[in-house]
Amino acid sequence: MDDKNITRKFRHGLFVFIALIIIELAEYIIGVSVSSGNFIFMVLLAVPGSWLIVHYFMHIKELWLPPEE
């Protein structure tokens, strides 16, 4: 039971990681190919990227949950 849960959570982590890599690569490609005015793309990519980390890895939701004890 536990083992299954742990692999499931590991898999979630992997998905988030893959999404982050895709974002990073997209940034990179835009960065080297679009020679000017790419600022807005960077913002559009970095914001969701950071949100993925904040949401899935840092569990920001815990702030809105009632204290558990």
């Binding site: 982050l20 990073e24 940034e27 990179y28 835009i30 960065g31 080297v32 679009v34 020679s35 000017s36 005015g37 790419n38 600022f39 960077m42 990519l45 970095a46 990227g49 950071s50 980390i53 904040v54 890895f57 840092m58």
Partner: peptide, 23 residues
């Protein structure tokens, strides 16, 4: 500690394009 570590990563997610990519 892990939360702090992720935060350091989040900071990099912004620093990287700011330094290397914007043009």
């Amino acid at each position: 500690v892990v939360k702090y570590w992720h935060f350091v990563d989040v900071a990099w997610v912004f620093i990287y394009p700011t330094l290397y990519l914007v043009n």
